[in-house]
Write a protein that binds this DNA or RNA. Structure first.
Lengths: 282, 282
DNA sequence: GAGATCGATACCCGTGCGGTATCGCTGCCC
DNA sequence: GGGCAGCGATACCGCACGGGTATCGATCTC
């Protein structure tokens, strides 16, 4: 199976529309139809159920979509990391560390300072991204190492080391009645009728159904909370960066959040190893 | 980057010889040379240092070899799993479980029995393989789930659940003086001059340098121990399948061995999930 | 210095990918 | 209900690119 075929199939599977997929791929529709047919013939498996009006994934197509995305990420990672390795020969290789925008900057800055003091330290570029994007960046080679937050982020497929664990707080508008409490329980805050939990986009960019406003990043979220339109559970360390119009109350029975440093299992370069080692010593 | 290019490069990188690599790939040498040159041009990176007599990997080439293998495995896995999913529609999908030949069969048979009793159980094919091969089978889709033994097997890149932990014993020929002891220390057995530890092949099929006989599987190993030519450290559960001409003595300070069930992180099918759940309940 | 070995180059051929034009089917709407 | 619009499939064409053979240039060996 060639990566071209995989790219074509993934495009069609995501669009569920040959014309749009072809436009996205920058080719015409007929060669795309042919390529998919040929892929199906070679696999001996129907991937799509097409009527002349609609396209739908079969069970096998669903599997190939999932596995194919992972495979394409791996190929892309091989490409990117090779290019980086080649540049490394003629200059500073550097590392790219990715973490969630809005996550605790205290741990990160401590880590960067400590690592910079190491004798064989290389430059570390920090990349901030929205929730759920880090895993992708790590898998396709755009980043070398990530700070993830369990249980929110999935660490599946990566090597990890635990760095620290913290409890969580509920973030509320400054004047809210609950802000007088010294602590609350999950049950007190999960179903506040006027302050629903926001909805984050899934890995496919779509929002799950349900109540609560849609948010894309932490700035939006904090704004919504300040406006009295939402509330949120967040790691305790977020208190350091709370605005004046927000308040935080510890949630005793909320799950603990563990910050881990994660890296792709196959590419343990010396630079990554050094950074990880520094991190575990913090 | 196309998988064809990756396959070509990996072949050359492994053979370090264009002629042999071309023969292995079933093509002539000139197109192979051209393909590699083109790959290097597109990546903007030298992958191989060639003189007219020898070929060697550059730093970037080493990276591409490592990453490229992983990517090719992922592509192959996508292929295989899609084919399997298509067959599943017209019959029993089934699971393939891989474990080391010679590993404890007690845990495995308990697991298989317990899982078979589940209402939605599918057939499980058991695949036995040599040490170090399981990870490969799991990564390239020939197996769905594996029983691995930490710290011997690397679980990097997989999701795992711990099943059980056991101590280790040293396996010796039946008449050996140490067999009278009730227990020994690592120091007592690591450097027995007449009974060296055997050497296992690495992932590349090559044997590391050093003393000790080369072995490929457990039968060979046991045979060598019985002949008084080797000794070995092994999990306690191996005692159940020891031959009469062998004896085992507990090694108090040997590292504990943990048996884990492992599966590829992206392909958590319902069948795999069921098997894992059954395993954790044992 | 002759020969062997190995990678690179030159050149040719055929497959296969991509393009345009068009068909056949289906749902929609006046 | 018939015309129309939208979609995927098919037919056909041209060319780029992958693969083959022949050969060269360099280097190691005896």
């Amino acid at each position: 199976m060639e990566t071209r075929e995989l790219r074509y199939f993934v495009a069609v599977a995501e669009e569920l529309h040959f014309g749009r997929a072809a436009r996205r791929l920058g080719i015409a529709q007929p060669p795309l139809s042919r390529a998919i047919r040929q892929l199906e013939r070679r696999l001996g498996a129907a991937l799509l159920e097409r009527t002349s009006r609609t396209v739908n994934l079969t069970e096998a197509g669903l599997v190939l979509l999932r596995e194919g995305r992972a495979a394409l990420d791996a190929v892309e990672a091989a490409d990117r990391r090779t290019r980086r390795a080649a540049l490394a020969a003629t200059g500073d290789p550097g590392l790219v560390l990715v973490t969630k925008a809005g996550a605790s900057s205290e741990l990160l800055s401590k880590l960067l300072d400590a690592y910079a003091a190491e004798p064989e330290a290389v430059t570390v570029d920090v990349l901030l991204c929205g929730p759920g994007e880090q895993e992708r960046l790590l898998r396709d080679g755009r980043a070398d190492v990530a700070l993830l937050h369990r249980p929110f982020d999935t660490t599946a497929g990566f090597d990890t080391e635990e760095l620290c664990t913290e409890s969580q707080v509920v973030v509320l508008p400054a004047g809210h009645p609950l802000t007088g409490r010294t602590h609350v329980q999950m049950a007190d805050v999960t179903d506040l009728p006027d302050l629903p939990m926001p909805r984050w986009p899934g890995p496919d960019g779509m929002y799950p159904d349900g109540p609560g406003p849609q948010v894309r990043d932490h700035t939006q979220l904090l704004q919504l909370i300040a406006l009295g339109r939402a509330s949120a559970i967040a790691p305790e360390s977020c208190r350091a960066q709370l605005r004046d119009d927000l308040a935080a109350v510890p949630v005793l029975d909320a799950p603990m959040v563990t910050t881990v440093i994660a890296w792709p299992p196959h590419s343990r370069s010396r630079a990554v190893a050094g950074l990880v080692q520094t991190a575990t010593r913090l």
